[in-house]
Design a binder for these strands. Structure first.
Length: 437
RNA sequence: GUGGAAUUAGCUCAGCUGGUUAGAGUGCCAGGUUGUGGCCCUGGAGGUCGUGGGUUCGACUCCCAUAUUCCACCCCA
């Protein structure tokens, strides 16, 4: 009966250790910074919402709602669901907080964890993080172009290359209905011979038949009618404008008439940033316009456009492209001490750290030699040996680990010197030149 | 949800067709002069071989279950 404790993190969840946390923090900061420059404000919404919100918002035809939600009943007998995506919750907040009376457009960004009950693969987790933006209140193609522009800026500032932008328009409910009809008409004669999944898709969501991987289905998809030919005038003009704005901003994109979104709320513009490095989960970022969403969840008729960016996939991509990003900074100084000077070391470290430096001291009672090894391992820039002599004359030798050079300095000058060194380092880094001291 | 592969020291992995005290590299700790790192040398700690059953004289090696990961679908960030 006594079961052995399962020490594994639950399937699809993971521990984020300091090294990765550091990179994430850098990523999140960069994103927040770009968003603020584009005039977006941060929003944080609850981790769980009433299940009904996602069923209505994301759509009961979507896979997310049909089989991937973490739904539970609380003690008040309410059905709640851990958010599987961000937009529905943000849209709910928009309605509940009366943001429709704010000066339009309302531009929000978020950084939140999401939960989807899915089978694991690289770059696909049951708890994962998304960075996202939403623009409420503008039906202008300028808004579509601006969120894409924001992403382009973000990727550029990260130093990320080799991600492709794909765009498409899936029209509005009216012209999409026409297109669905046309698709069904086209597929009707073949459907018997198509794969099992496509039988289901034919009934539920014919758009999906277009990106089926089965050879036969794919051959049919090649000749299937294109959504773009069925766009109504308004949707067509909108899409053309989006494209021309992108052209104007010199953002390259690939038209993909078979690009579909997994969530039901999308209208008109849809887009993805894809990479070839993340395995089958090549989509790093997905987004689009969702003009019907706010009304669908019970608000007024407000247009919206936004995107969600997968943090784990972006990190994989940064790794794959060897983008140096968010590396922890090494200590400015390691203070080596002896039992008799431990207190002095702590005190000096305290002072220097308060001045803004990163300083390490030994708390393992190690030999001097071992302290040097430790300092070397953490790539400290300098080591100061603080022994009885140094304490009594208030001077010490500051040793630079990169070349072993030492200089004799008053202890009171150490802080200033190190700040000075640090400044020179950062300047050198910026100009990508070697610096001499 | 479907199909397949993997799981042995902190990490990356050996371990032949089941046979005595389970290995390497790396990392970690310590020593190689009594106050000085990176190289080198030596030593040490660390594994109930994912977990639970079963077959067997005997299982890390075979069988079953379960957990986790990975791959292909599905789908998505």
């Amino acid at each position: 009966m006594e079961a052995v404790m399962n020490l594994n993190a639950p399937r699809g969840t993971r521990d984020i250790l300091p090294e990765e946390a550091e990179r994430r923090r850098a990523l999140e900061r960069a994103f927040a910074d770009v968003c603020e420059r584009y005039g977006f404000g941060e929003i944080r919404v609850p981790t769980f919402e009433h299940t009904e919100l996602f069923v209505r918002g994301v759509g009961d035809a979507s896979d997310i709602v049909r089989k991937e939600m973490y739904t539970f009943t609380d003690k008040g007998d309410r059905s709640l669901t851990l958010r599987p995506e961000g937009t529905a919750g943000v849209a709910r907040a928009y309605v509940e907080q009366g943001m429709s009376s704010w000066p339009a457009p309302v531009k929000l960004w978020y950084n939140m964890n999401m939960f989807r009950y899915e089978k694991m693969q690289k770059g696909r987790y049951r708890e994962f993080w998304q960075l996202g933006c939403e623009v409420f209140g503008s039906d202008s193609p300028q808004a579509d172009a601006q969120v894409i522009g924001l992403l382009e800026t973000f990727f550029r500032e990260l130093g990320l290359g080799e991600v492709d932008l794909e765009i498409n328009s899936i029209g509005c409910p009216q012209c999409r209905a026409d297109y669905h009809k046309a698709l069904r008409q086209y597929y009707a004669v073949y459907v018997e011979d198509m794969c099992e999944d496509c039988h289901d898709r034919f009934e539920r969501n014919p758009l999906r038949m277009l990106d089926c991987k089965e050879p036969y289905c794919q051959s049919l998809a090649m000749k299937a009618p294109s959504q773009l030919d069925y766009l109504c005038d308004e949707c067509k003009v909108h899409f053309d404008s989006v494209k021309s704005y992108l052209d104007e901003m010199e953002i390259s994109y690939r038209l993909n008439s078979r690009l579909v979104r997994g969530l039901d709320y999308y209208t008109k513009t849809v887009f993805e940033f894809v990479s070839s490095h993340v395995g089958t989960q090549g989509t790093i970022c997905g987004g689009g316009r969702y003009d019907g969403l706010v009304r669908e969840i019970g608000g007024i008729d407000v247009p919206g456009v936004g995107f969600a960016l997968g943090v784990e996939r972006l990190l994989l991509e940064l790794d794959a492209q060897n983008v140096p990003f968010g590396k922890a900074q090494s200590p400015d100084l390691f203070i080596a001490s002896f039992p008799s000077t431990a207190a002095n070391a702590l005190d000096l470290a305290q002072t220097l750290i308060r001045s803004g430096l990163k300083v390490e001291t030994d708390v393992m009672g190690r030999s001097l030699k071992a302290q040097f090894k430790a300092a070397d391992r953490m790539e400290a820039h300098y080591v100061l040996v603080l022994g009885d002599t140094e304490v009594s004359i208030s001077r010490g030798k500051l040793r630079r680990l990169s070349d072993g050079s030492e200089q004799d300095v008053p202890l009171t000058a150490v802080g200033t010197l190190l700040h000075d060194y640090r400044k020179k380092r950062s300047v050198a880094e910026k100009e990508e030149v070697r610096f001499e001291l």
